[in-house]
Nucleic acid binder design. Structure first.
Length: 482
RNA sequence: GGGCCCUUCGUCUAUCGGUUAGGACAUCAGAUUUUCAAUCUGGGAAGAGGGGUUCGACUCCCCUAGGGCCUGCCA
């Protein structure tokens, strides 16, 4: 279940001469947030750009939320998005011993201490500190261990109170934090389990991560983590903090905006290559380039070109990009995707579905912004006979309408060129022969071809339906409305 | 409350002291047209506000305003 994927064929192995190692470190909460997906994309692009290595670390130290199913969701999300890793995933929980060892090391060095404050005392101190506009302070920072063994304690970093900590961020530039603003963060909980900030530092260091590219929300953590690196005597990696993705209204992206997980986007009919292109453009740019291939993005990607301001998700533009990639997509692949949509909708799937889709998809794919739309556009070709004759069609067929449809059926069955162009010509000649405009032909033909669904222009619809089906639909209506 | 980050058309962005501030999506108008879509042509649309620095600021500095993140024995 949790095995590494083989590197896809055609992609070069990591260049051992490149020192760059990046990672994405999601926590298995049950979904893969789109913001995490973009962070992963940037890490992937940078690793590929430099010939470096791209790694996955599952931050599963929260044993409550971390389940095998949730971990699988993450793997599936990245696989769908098309991001590949260069090694098997690292599970943070499995490395707890390493984290504890690092804490012990800091304790031994005197750069960490045991804090015996009770949760209640801590809560009080937090309240006082906030009121006074300062960080929390533990009385145990410089005090000897209390008498009587067995008192529970957490291990805290003994952070410097003087001076400043500098984070040289590749996106934000130099960011200075006053050390008295940074608190003695907890390294080990009372149960001995490592906390996030400790685990991240130890894992990034031991995995050889050279560039920590992650969300903006970790910029403050970068300062705290820098302190841990120093306490351990390690050099920190390069940091690059990406601005967050917000919803169209500027607020933090959430379910409320219609989608927040990559599975949501997949379910809404977006193609992974479209999402990659759109996401890359959100917060990064290469001049005026809007539509570009993975290869181009990889060759162009520089952290220096990452934008520093947060971006809003724009459905309209995502749709536009997706439409572009749908046009480019292979028809058979689209047919498969449409079929999945039909299945999930429990829609009617005629026995000759494959042939119908093969004929109709190339005709209507130009106008589809999502696979969901494509499934709608193709519906007219999936309807089985007989076509329902509604009041509107009945009205159109009244009087000379029926006679005209009869003559049209004849003209169509005589047609030798059943292509979209051929049909356009046939229709035009027919209208001329009738001495009327196409406006007199559309109302009687369209409902029959559309069969209650949305249909493309008459000629395209005829072509998409195919000679046999189109003629049959007309004949049945003809014999039905005597 | 405190710390940190951010601020160019509605949106994503280009500009890296001197431009009629460019492009894309969206939007509007026109063309095309058997509906819708697509397509083509054209138009409107921006440097948050205030101070500096400079011969010259969107660009550099400061202040204000607004938005965001962090401030957990979550990650």
């Amino acid at each position: 279940m949790l095995r590494p994927r083989a590197p896809p064929p055609g992609r070069a192995m990591p260049d051992p001469a490149s020192p760059v190692v990046t990672r994405i470190a999601p926590s298995p909460t049950g979904k893969l947030h789109i913001g995490n997906a973009r962070t992963a994309l940037f890490n992937w692009l940078y690793a590929r750009h430099t010939g470096g290595t791209f790694l996955l670390r599952v931050e599963d130290t929260d044993r409550e939320r971390s389940t095998a199913e949730n971990v699988e969701v993450i793997f599936e999300g990245f696989a769908w998005l098309g991001l590949d890793f260069d090694a098997a995933p690292v599970f943070q929980h499995a490395r707890a011993d390493r984290h504890r060892a690092a804490a012990a090391e800091m304790l031994a060095r005197g750069s960490a201490y045991r804090d015996y404050m009770t949760p209640e005392e801590l809560a009080e101190e937090r309240e006082r500190a906030r009121a006074e506009g300062r960080t929390i302070r533990s009385p145990w920072r410089d005090a000897p261990a209390p008498a009587g063994a067995g008192k529970p304690f957490v291990v805290r970093l003994k952070a410097p109170r003087e001076g400043e900590t500098l984070v040289e961020d590749l996106v934000k530039g130099p960011v200075v934090f006053r050390n008295d603003q940074l608190d003695d963060l907890i390294l080990l909980r009372a149960d001995g389990s490592p906390t996030y900030n400790l685990a991240v530092v130890v894992d990034d260091h031991e995995m050889g991560i050279t560039h920590v590219i992650r969300g903006d929300d970790h910029l403050n953590n970068a300062a705290r983590q820098t302190l841990i690196y120093q306490a351990l005597g390690w050099g920190p990696p390069a940091f690059a903090h990406l601005p967050l993705i917000h919803g169209p209204d500027g607020a933090k992206l959430s379910k409320r905006h219609g989608a927040e997980a990559v599975s949501d986007f997949a379910g809404m009919g977006y193609l992974p290559e479209a999402l990659r292109n759109y996401l890359a453009r959100l917060g990064w740019g290469h001049g005026d380039d809007e539509i570009f291939s993975d290869a181009q993005a990889i060759s162009w990607f520089e952290i220096a070109d990452v934008v520093s301001a947060p971006a809003r998700l724009d459905w309209a533009k995502l749709n536009h990009v997706n439409q572009h990639y749908i046009r480019l997509a292979d028809d058979a692949r689209l047919a498969g995707l449409v079929d999945e949509v039909l299945k999930s909708r429990e829609a009617h799937r005629p026995p000759d579905l494959a042939e119908r889709l093969a004929r109709a998809i190339p005709v209507v794919k130009e106008g589809a912004k999502t696979i969901l739309e494509l499934a709608d556009l193709v519906l007219f070709a999936l309807k089985e006979r007989p076509v329902a004759v509604d009041e509107k069609l009945k009205a159109a067929l009244a009087g000379e309408g029926r006679e005209r449809l009869g003559r049209l059926a004849l003209a169509l069955s005589d047609a030798s060129d059943w292509s979209a162009e051929g049909m356009a010509g046939t229709l035009k000649r027919f209208a001329e022969g009738e001495g009327v405009g196409l406006g007199k032909v559309g109302p009687i033909l369209r409902p029959i071809l559309a069969a209650g669904a949305v249909a493309p222009d008459l000629a395209s619809a005829l072509f998409a339906l195919g000679r046999a089906e189109a003629l049959a639909r007309i004949q049945e209506v003809l014999s039905h409305v005597q």
